[in-house]
């Protein structure tokens, strides 16, 4: 089997811890459910991620070098 996590085109996905999430939700003044979503079955998310977790995705960007995106894991 191919390990998609190791593929160059798959950006780094990381499960955030609760403290980080809280701080970051506060920063944007949002609820967890206002975040963009990612389904639990997505091959790119780490194996330990479960529904309700928040994933931090670190992407390469031409203009800012790295761009961070956050997604809530939902069923599916």
């Amino acid at each position: 089997m191919v390990n998609v996590h190791a593929h160059t085109l798959v950006p780094e996905h990381r499960v955030m811890n609760e403290d980080e999430i809280e701080e970051f939700l506060e920063e944007y003044d949002i609820d967890r459910t206002d975040l963009p979503k990612i389904v639990a079955g997505d091959a790119a998310i780490p194996d330990e991620a479960s529904v309700g977790d928040v994933i931090e995705i670190k992407r390469d960007s031409r203009t800012t070098t790295t761009a961070y995106v956050y997604r809530l894991v939902i069923e599916g």
Binding site: D34, P36, R59, T63, T64, A67
Partner: peptide
């Protein structure tokens, strides 16, 4: 939220 930073940058 659709983008955390306009255009991601």
């Amino acid at each position: 939220i659709v983008q955390f930073e306009f255009g991601e940058d």
